[in-house]
């Protein structure tokens, strides 16, 4: 499959659009359906798609394991960190109103950041799981 030139070309065309779509879903989630979780899944899907066409090693080169593993952890930290920041600014845990001078603005800011956190962790985890599953048989075959 990796040698199929048509697929490769199509993939190279589609994958940027997928990522763009993910960003749209991520940031348009306030106004339409979507949000961090769905965006994370789409980002992961894009990379998985890449891996299926160009092979796992190529995908691993594009997005190395350690980055993925860092994503897995850092998304949760971003989310929980927003809560800690709101604590430090004198609010309750995850009270976004204190994040800006104006409560509504603070809410928007808080929602933005927690959605970013969700997206990072979700895409990281989905990718990591894919790497784990896909890499398994190869290792087994190698020895």
């Amino acid at each position: 499959m990796r040698r199929d030139i048509v697929l490769r070309v199509i993939a190279k065309l589609i994958i940027p659009f997928m990522l763009l779509f993910a960003l749209y879903v991520q940031f348009h989630g306030d106004f339409g359906p979507g949000g961090g979780f769905q965006a994370g899944v789409i980002i992961a899907t894009a990379v998985i798609f890449y891996a299926l066409i160009f092979g796992l090693p190529a995908a691993r080169q594009l997005l190395p394991e350690w980055i993925v593993e860092t994503m897995v952890a850092s998304g949760v930290l971003v989310y929980a960190g927003v809560g800690i920041v709101s604590l430090l600014l004198g609010g309750s845990y995850l009270d976004y109103s204190v994040l800006a001078h104006d409560a509504v603005h603070g809410q928007e800011r808080g929602i933005f950041w927690v959605e970013v956190g969700v997206a990072i962790t979700v895409s990281g985890v989905m990718l990591k799981i894919f790497y784990m599953f896909a890499g398994r048989r190869r290792d087994e075959d190698n020895g």
Binding site: P33, G35, E108, I111
Partner: peptide, 20 residues
């Protein structure tokens, strides 16, 4: 919250802790 999508605002703010 300034967010028209009630699902997003409930998810991320009212019940943001669930989402964490």
């Amino acid at each position: 919250t300034g967010v028209p999508n009630a699902v997003t605002s409930v998810l991320a703010s009212y019940r943001g802790y669930d989402t964490l």
